[in-house]
Amino acid sequence: MVTEADPGAARTSVWLAVRPASPARRRTEAPSGLDRDRIIAAAVRLLDAEGLTRFSMRRLASALGVTAISLYWYVDTKHDLLELALDSALGRQRLPAEPAADAPWPVLLKALACGYRRLVGEHPWVAPLSLAYPNIGPHARAFDAALQGLLDRTGLGDAGRTGAHLAVSRFLNGCGGTARQVPEADFGLALDVLIAGIQAQADGRAPGITPR
């Protein structure tokens, strides 16, 4: 069954779809004072205020003071808009900056994971949408690049980094994605165990994957 948070396999991600440009005549007919960025920002506010299950294009249009049909000048479907809102929310997390390059990778990895947990706590609808849609928007890819950059500093070989990336991603989508249900102390302990496991593999102190 396809739900609001489960678009199914038939649709194409908004990040992959090619949206044809509107003819000049039709562009002049687009609703004034409305643009895609404004619609996305309003969608994020509505999702924060009312949640994913109550979200609809009609309610969003009402919040913007326009008709529902006006929104479709800028987004093709509701699912496209939810994908755009998801990536917009992901862009609110601060990622490790270059000046922090001297900090130990476990410290930066913990900060990255805790930042994601805080983001999900502030925007609970992010977790289910992250599981339902491909996370290939620019901010999702920036987060993944930051994670990969930290794992590159562990000293693990290719297989080890791949396994660590999978472990951290699954952890964040599971334990981190239920930020309002998992107590802070439990999340922190589980994260410390995960990081310690990666460190042990990198140092050659654990059986299995060799560090290089």
Rank of each mutant, 00 (worst) to 15 (best):
V120L: 02
E50A: 15
A24H: 11
R59I: 00
L191C: 06
Q181N: 07
L90D: 07
I209A: 07
L150N: 09
Q148Y: 08
R27A: 10
V193W: 08
P138E: 08
V18H: 14
C114P: 00
G8R: 05
F187W: 11
L90N: 11
L189I: 09
N135E: 03
T77A: 09
L52F: 09
R58V: 12
V107P: 00
P23M: 09
R205S: 12
R26E: 14
G91C: 09
T162H: 11
A101P: 05
T178S: 11
T178R: 10
S169M: 08
R45V: 13
Q201N: 13
W73P: 00
A89S: 14
P104E: 10
G208E: 05
L191T: 00
L82T: 00
R205E: 13
A190T: 01
G176Q: 04
R58H: 11
V168D: 02
A30H: 11
R27F: 04
K78S: 12
W73F: 12
D203N: 04
I40P: 00
R36Y: 03
D35S: 07
A190S: 15
A101K: 11
V126Q: 03
P211I: 02
A85P: 02
S130D: 04
I40N: 00
L52Q: 12
Q93A: 12
A196L: 10
W125Q: 05
Q148E: 14
Q199G: 15
T210A: 15
A10D: 13
L119Y: 06
G157N: 06
T210V: 11
G197D: 05
D186E: 13
T178G: 04
A17H: 11
T154N: 08
V14A: 15
S32C: 03
G204N: 06
L109N: 05
L109D: 00
